[in-house]
């Protein structure tokens, strides 16, 4: 056949689009207002694609403060210098805005105080708000 795409076109035309319309089918006029509406329950958000395996997924880092012994090994290996040491408490503070989600700090932590979470919708208007700083 000279133009094999024709058949595929017709098939696809009557099929549901492949795209997952996240967060809404058409871009809302104001994203901020849309998110506020979603919080109030006025608008509905189209869910993102599900996480395939929660165990291996690398989302927002989780920090168990009590387990941390302040050895600073994570600070040594962190490639993007996202972790800060709090001297007086001997604990750490992680800036998610700088984190590259490599989970290297998880591997080196001697007490398993760090682990990768499942949260990945981390867009924000400030780099240092509560959601983007883990301590």
């Amino acid at each position: 056949m000279m133009f094999p795409m024709f058949k595929q076109l017709i098939v696809q035309m009557f099929r549901k689009p492949f795209t997952n319309p996240f967060p809404a089918k058409y871009a809302p006029k104001s994203m901020k207002k849309f998110m506020e509406d979603v919080e109030k329950g006025k608008a509905k958000i189209n869910p993102p694609v599900e996480i395939p395996d929660e165990e291996t997924f690398r989302g927002r880092i989780l920090y168990d403060r009590d387990k941390c012994i302040g050895c600073q090994l994570c600070i040594k290996v962190c490639p993007s210098k996202a972790i800060e040491f709090k001297k007086e408490e001997k604990k750490i503070r992680i800036y998610i805005g700088r984190c590259i989600f490599c989970s290297q700090c998880n591997d080196i932590c001697p007490t398993n105080a760090l682990s990768m979470g499942n949260e990945f919708l981390l867009a924000s208007d400030s780099k240092v708000n509560d959601e983007l700083v883990v301590e």
């Binding site: 035309m13 089918k25 058409y26």
Partner: peptide, 12 residues
């Protein structure tokens, strides 16, 4: 229409 043929949602 072209968007639907390409399995996309397409613009309004």
């Amino acid at each position: 229409l072209v968007a639907r043929m390409q399995a996309r949602v397409g613009p309004p």
